[in-house]
């Protein structure tokens, strides 16, 4: 599509690297489209650089601090069939995947 090319904030190599990390197979057209979209979004995000963030602590969570803890008690019964009911492929009680090469 005809686009005002945003200043390139991420190169095609960058897009491919991120896609590998995210395990997304992309074709060339998708790569180009994502490069454009991500660049536009990252350019918008540059806005954050206007702020002086010295001494500002990060906020990761907004709930109450101190994780609740459960007692060390077994409450679940073995449930292999429930676990395997949605399996795309299985062998006996195992989930089956293409061969892993280490």
């Amino acid at each position: 599509m005809p686009v005002r090319m945003a200043e390139t904030k991420i190169g095609l190599d960058g897009v491919r690297h991120v896609a590998r990390l995210a395990r997304l197979e992309l074709d060339a057209e998708q790569e180009a489209r994502l490069q454009h979209d991500l660049s536009a979004i990252l350019e918008y995000i540059e806005k954050l650089n206007e702020l002086d963030l010295g001494g500002v602590e990060p906020t990761a969570q907004v709930g109450e601090a101190g994780t609740p803890m459960r007692d060390d008690v077994v409450t679940n019964q073995p449930a292999a069939e429930a676990a395997l009911a949605n399996a795309p492929a299985r062998e006996g009680f195992w989930f089956k995947v293409p061969k892993i090469i280490e």
Binding site: L48, L51, L53, V56, E57, P58, T59, A60
Partner: peptide, 9 residues
């Protein structure tokens, strides 16, 4: 991390 700091603000 920067976004988390702005979240604080």
């Amino acid at each position: 991390l920067k976004a988390q700091r702005v979240r604080t603000l």
